[in-house]
């Protein structure tokens, strides 16, 4: 029963999931810019074109709105497209089809159709690609009922969640932090799924809950290690999905630790952390809080080019450590 487990990278895990899905189901096709012989801007599709041919690994012209719309139309009528945006920033060009069409079609038609569409968005800063190639826009799509929006943080999860997404009858948006692509981790061979609506406790702790998304999960884990050395026990929750949000896991954690910090790369204001904070404020965990809720999010700026400014624009490990220490020791 237990499949062999190897260490592979996050991008290899995605590629493997896509290959398994394509092998299993003729209706699964890949669409995107330069995903064929080029292998994708981040080499995620790699050599899949050699295996599945150009009819199933389709290079689109540089036409995000049209391409996304074609994927929606194909999904509604019987194909199962996995659509890659070259950078998540270019979702801005395709918002019409994602937000007004894909997300609402089933609802508007009274359940007569479904839209089994997967879209992949390479996201985040840290590569020196500046303001139009570095954004974390997941909260935009998280605001749209009808979409499922996930941010897998490990190779294991991205494979399992992608396979769950392909099997899901509704549109699933996957935000993949670009700095995760080369990160390696244990991944079982073969088919398995990871639920699209469950957070994961990555590290148990008593003093403070750190709820993080995507690459911030790894920074939070690093911070938890430092904090442990100082006698502060941090629990780290990998949210994994921002629509839906796994309320139960977060509420249970906060009831245990009585303190909450949200860490995410998207712009702080009106972001994922605002939602988590409000959710806790509205929940039975509110009465357990011993300290105000803190959010560490991206700065209220575009992402700058200069590398030092770029680092300063998103939460880093020392900030998480300081925030948690302050919260637990009561100094803010």
């Amino acid at each position: 029963m237990n499949a062999p487990v190897r260490e592979i990278s996050y991008s290899q895990a995605i590629q493997e999931a896509m290959a398994i899905a394509m092998e299993a189901d003729e209706r699964v096709i890949l669409m995107g810019e330069d995903i064929g012989v080029y292998g994708g801007a981040f080499q995620v599709t790699g050599d899949l074109i050699d295996r599945f041919g150009p009819d199933r690994v389709m290079d689109t012209p540089i036409s995000e709105l049209g391409g996304a719309g074609v994927a929606v139309g194909a999904a509604v009528t019987g194909l199962r497209p996995i659509f890659e945006f070259q950078f998540s920033d270019f979702a801005a060009l395709a918002m019409e089809q994602i937000v007004n069409q894909a997300a609402k079609m089933r609802y508007m038609l009274g359940g007569a159709v479904s839209v089994p569409l997967v879209m992949r968005f390479p996201a985040g800063s840290g590569t020196g690609a500046a303001a139009q190639h570095s954004q974390s826009l997941e909260a935009w799509l998280g605001h749209v009922p009808g979409l499922k929006v996930i941010q897998p943080a490990t190779p294991h999860d991205v494979k399992g969640m992608l396979l769950a997404a392909v099997a899901d009858p509704d549109p699933v948006m996957i935000f993949e932090h670009k700095l995760l692509y080369k990160m390696k981790g244990p991944v079982p061979e073969g088919h398995y799924t990871v639920p699209l609506n469950k957070a994961e406790v990555r590290r148990e702790g008593r003093d403070v809950s750190i709820v993080a998304t995507s690459i911030m999960v790894h920074k939070a884990l690093e911070a938890a290690e430092v904090l442990a050395g100082e006698g502060v026990s941090a629990e780290v929750i990998d949210l994994r999905s921002i629509r839906p949000i796994d309320r139960e896991t977060v509420v249970a954690s906060v009831k245990k630790t009585s303190r909450l910090i949200c860490v995410y790369e998207g712009v702080k204001t009106l972001g994922v952390g605002a939602e988590i904070s409000a959710m806790i404020a509205e929940s039975e965990a509110f009465d357990y809080l011993d300290a105000p809720i803190l959010r560490l999010g991206g700065s209220e700026t575009p992402i700058p080019y200069n590398p030092e400014l770029e680092k300063a624009a998103v939460p880093q490990v020392p900030e998480i450590v300081d925030a948690a220490r302050g919260l637990v020791r009561g100094v803010r």
């Binding site: 920033d89 020196g128 500046a130 303001a131 139009q132 575009p302 700058p304 080019y305 200069n306 400014l309």
Partner: peptide
């Protein structure tokens, strides 16, 4: 230092900017 290669511009000579 905010733009880099992909956003190079020189408004004084009429260049409204490269574009990402």
């Amino acid at each position: 230092g905010r733009g880099g290669s992909m956003h190079i511009a020189d408004v004084s000579t009429g260049n409204l900017g490269a574009n990402g």
